[in-house]
Lab assay of single mutants.
Amino acid sequence: AEKTGIVNVSSSLNAREGASTSSKVIGSLSGNTKVTIVGEEGAFYKIEYKGSHGYVAKEYIKDIKDE
């Protein structure tokens, strides 16, 4: 099942092309942005936001229960 997560940073969080800190940054998400978690790979979540996919470090995403 898809989960919703909240970007848990004070400034912004980089979204990357792949599940690695050396992957190209494809965008950034500001704190408290809601994202859909579609998968996980190592220390990263694969997320969907406004129709695009990217990878973000798990430690900066807070899971919330689907309402």
Rank of each mutant, 00 (worst) to 15 (best):
35 V>F: 03
53 H>C: 10
14 N>V: 15
18 G>D: 09
26 I>S: 03
43 A>E: 15
27 G>M: 15
10 S>L: 12
52 S>W: 14
56 V>M: 01
16 R>G: 03
25 V>G: 03
16 R>S: 06
35 V>K: 00
39 G>S: 06
56 V>S: 00
5 G>E: 03
59 E>V: 09
38 V>P: 00
55 Y>D: 00
5 G>R: 03
32 N>D: 09
42 G>H: 04
50 K>D: 11
17 E>G: 05
65 K>V: 13
49 Y>P: 00
65 K>C: 11
9 V>N: 07
54 G>L: 08
39 G>H: 02
58 K>Q: 04
28 S>Q: 14
39 G>E: 03
2 E>G: 14
63 D>Y: 10
48 E>N: 09
34 K>G: 03
61 I>L: 06
19 A>M: 05
31 G>S: 13
31 G>K: 14
58 K>F: 04
11 S>D: 12
36 T>P: 01
37 I>H: 00
37 I>P: 01
3 K>T: 07
66 D>K: 09
11 S>M: 10
8 N>A: 13
33 T>C: 11
51 G>V: 01
61 I>A: 01
32 N>C: 15
37 I>Q: 00
25 V>S: 06
33 T>Q: 10
46 K>M: 10
38 V>M: 06
10 S>T: 12
27 G>V: 08
40 E>T: 06
25 V>F: 05
24 K>E: 06
53 H>K: 04
60 Y>D: 09
11 S>F: 07
39 G>R: 01
11 S>Y: 07
41 E>W: 07
54 G>P: 01
1 A>F: 14
32 N>V: 05
12 S>Y: 12
52 S>R: 13
47 I>Y: 02
8 N>T: 11
8 N>R: 12
26 I>H: 02
25 V>H: 03
24 K>V: 07
30 S>L: 14
9 V>W: 05
21 T>Y: 14
57 A>K: 11
30 S>H: 11
41 E>L: 07
42 G>I: 00
3 K>N: 04
62 K>N: 09
37 I>Y: 00
64 I>Q: 06
41 E>H: 07
1 A>I: 13
38 V>E: 03
47 I>V: 06
56 V>H: 00
16 R>C: 08
27 G>H: 04
20 S>Y: 07
26 I>R: 01
42 G>F: 02
55 Y>N: 00
32 N>S: 08
7 V>W: 01
30 S>R: 14
36 T>D: 04
60 Y>C: 14
56 V>Y: 00
21 T>V: 12
57 A>D: 12
25 V>D: 02
45 Y>W: 12
43 A>L: 11
62 K>Y: 08
6 I>C: 13
61 I>C: 03
62 K>Q: 10
47 I>Q: 02
62 K>P: 02
46 K>S: 02
58 K>A: 02
19 A>C: 07
59 E>A: 10
1 A>K: 14
56 V>T: 00
59 E>D: 08
22 S>F: 07
36 T>R: 14
24 K>C: 08
48 E>H: 08
1 A>T: 13
58 K>I: 06
51 G>W: 03
3 K>S: 06
2 E>H: 15
30 S>F: 11
30 S>D: 11
40 E>G: 02
64 I>A: 07
23 S>N: 04
54 G>C: 12
39 G>P: 00
58 K>L: 02
29 L>D: 01
59 E>Y: 06
50 K>I: 05
35 V>H: 00
15 A>N: 02
19 A>G: 04
38 V>Q: 03
33 T>Y: 05
41 E>C: 13
51 G>Y: 03
40 E>M: 07
67 E>N: 12
9 V>K: 08
21 T>C: 15
26 I>Y: 02
43 A>V: 07
20 S>Q: 05
2 E>I: 15
57 A>C: 14
66 D>W: 15
35 V>M: 01
65 K>T: 13
62 K>D: 10
64 I>R: 03
61 I>V: 08
44 F>A: 00
34 K>P: 06
46 K>H: 05
61 I>F: 04
34 K>E: 06
52 S>D: 07
9 V>P: 08
16 R>L: 15
39 G>Q: 03
63 D>I: 15
65 K>S: 13
41 E>G: 01
28 S>F: 12
44 F>E: 03
15 A>G: 03
18 G>V: 06
14 N>Y: 12
62 K>I: 14
34 K>C: 13
34 K>R: 13
1 A>D: 08
58 K>R: 06
13 L>E: 03
47 I>T: 02
13 L>K: 02
4 T>Y: 13
25 V>L: 06
7 V>L: 06
13 L>A: 13
28 S>V: 14
34 K>D: 02
60 Y>A: 08
14 N>I: 15
2 E>T: 15
58 K>E: 00
32 N>Y: 10
26 I>F: 03
42 G>R: 01
49 Y>K: 00
13 L>H: 03
24 K>D: 05
51 G>R: 03
56 V>N: 00
43 A>C: 13
58 K>S: 03
4 T>H: 10
55 Y>Q: 00
40 E>Q: 07
51 G>M: 04
59 E>S: 07
13 L>G: 04
9 V>F: 06
41 E>M: 07
35 V>S: 00
56 V>Q: 00
24 K>L: 08
53 H>Y: 15
27 G>S: 03
57 A>L: 15
10 S>Y: 09
27 G>T: 07
42 G>Y: 04
39 G>D: 06
48 E>Y: 11
43 A>Q: 11
44 F>R: 00
49 Y>E: 02
53 H>P: 05
34 K>Q: 09
31 G>C: 14
35 V>C: 06
6 I>Y: 11
18 G>W: 10
32 N>T: 06
42 G>S: 04
9 V>R: 07
67 E>S: 13
29 L>R: 00
41 E>R: 04
12 S>G: 13
50 K>S: 07
64 I>T: 07
6 I>S: 04
10 S>D: 11
40 E>D: 06
23 S>R: 03
52 S>T: 13
37 I>D: 00
47 I>F: 02
39 G>L: 02
57 A>P: 15
45 Y>H: 05
37 I>S: 00
23 S>I: 03
56 V>C: 04
50 K>W: 07
6 I>E: 03
38 V>F: 05
12 S>R: 13
17 E>P: 04
63 D>M: 15
16 R>T: 11
60 Y>S: 08
8 N>D: 09
60 Y>H: 10
20 S>A: 06
31 G>T: 11
8 N>K: 12
8 N>H: 10
8 N>Q: 09
42 G>M: 02
57 A>R: 11
4 T>A: 06
18 G>A: 14
65 K>N: 10
64 I>N: 05
52 S>I: 14
12 S>C: 15
55 Y>G: 00
40 E>C: 09
44 F>W: 14
48 E>M: 12
23 S>F: 05
42 G>C: 07
9 V>S: 12
1 A>H: 14
55 Y>F: 11
36 T>H: 10
24 K>I: 07
28 S>M: 12
21 T>S: 13
31 G>Y: 12
3 K>Q: 07
53 H>F: 15
21 T>P: 12
2 E>R: 15
43 A>H: 09
43 A>N: 13
21 T>F: 14
17 E>F: 07
50 K>F: 11
19 A>Y: 03
52 S>K: 13
63 D>Q: 12
8 N>S: 11
51 G>Q: 06
35 V>T: 00
